[in-house]
Amino acid sequence: MDRLDMLEAQSIYILREAYKSFGKLGMLWSIGKDSTVMLWLAKKAFFGHCPFPFIHIDTTYKIPEMIRFRDKIAKEYNLDLIVYTNWDAINNGMGPEKGRLVCCKALKTDALQHVIDKYKFEGLIVGVRRDEEGSRSKERIFSERNKESEWNYTNQPPELWDQFKTDFPKGNHIRVHPILNWTELDIWEYIKRENIPVVDLYFAKNGKRYRSLGCAQCTGQIDSNASTVDEIIEELKHTNINERAGRAQDKEDAYAMQKLRKDGYM
């Protein structure tokens, strides 16, 4: 079987297992390439109609093109979209200048926690990949979080073949990771094969492009002339630079992402 076919089949299986297992299920959509691929997979898994809401945690610091792309796609695909901002924190002056990790915690992790509490989500589908960074490399496909969204990563349950742990105490929830085993290159090859629309920011203009998208202040561009999907694929085949090199988060200290994610960050 072709690698992309294999990955697609596995992801679709995971999405359907999640739908079967959880009463209240939602998918995080960050507008980036990974969760946009996941949205595509969800449409395939459920024959064009996604039977759960999509959640965008809007920090208000996103790059404007991202928001325009979000609204356009949401309309085209007729998505049930929940947009949530932690306005209390914003109104109290929260922003990147308060410290990147503090800001991520308040505007992303805490915001997500508010959404979980409000809608009582039991399952949240998240588009993280192992090859992004260390703590994600150690994830399970179905990964439990407690009431405070904490991840007990030193004691994860076994996960054998395609048997996933779906029972958990009330109030906890499961993070479902359908594209955990995809690489960045897989994502772009799939985007090419399926002709999936992605936000323009990934394509080079004047020698620069975004390789990973986040908040404007904390995400840098890379030097690149790759202005089409084909050129991005070629670029990735020959680069040895880390995908998240442009992201400030990962640079704070060696275990910054682990700490953020332990507390419920995606």
Partner: peptide, 19 residues
């Protein structure tokens, strides 16, 4: 061994996969 606990104790705690 990406986890802080793994590096501090010098052992692997959980499994991972790489391409």
């Amino acid at each position: 061994d990406a986890f802080e606990e793994e590096q501090k104790q010098g052992i692997t705690i959980d499994t991972t996969q790489i391409q």
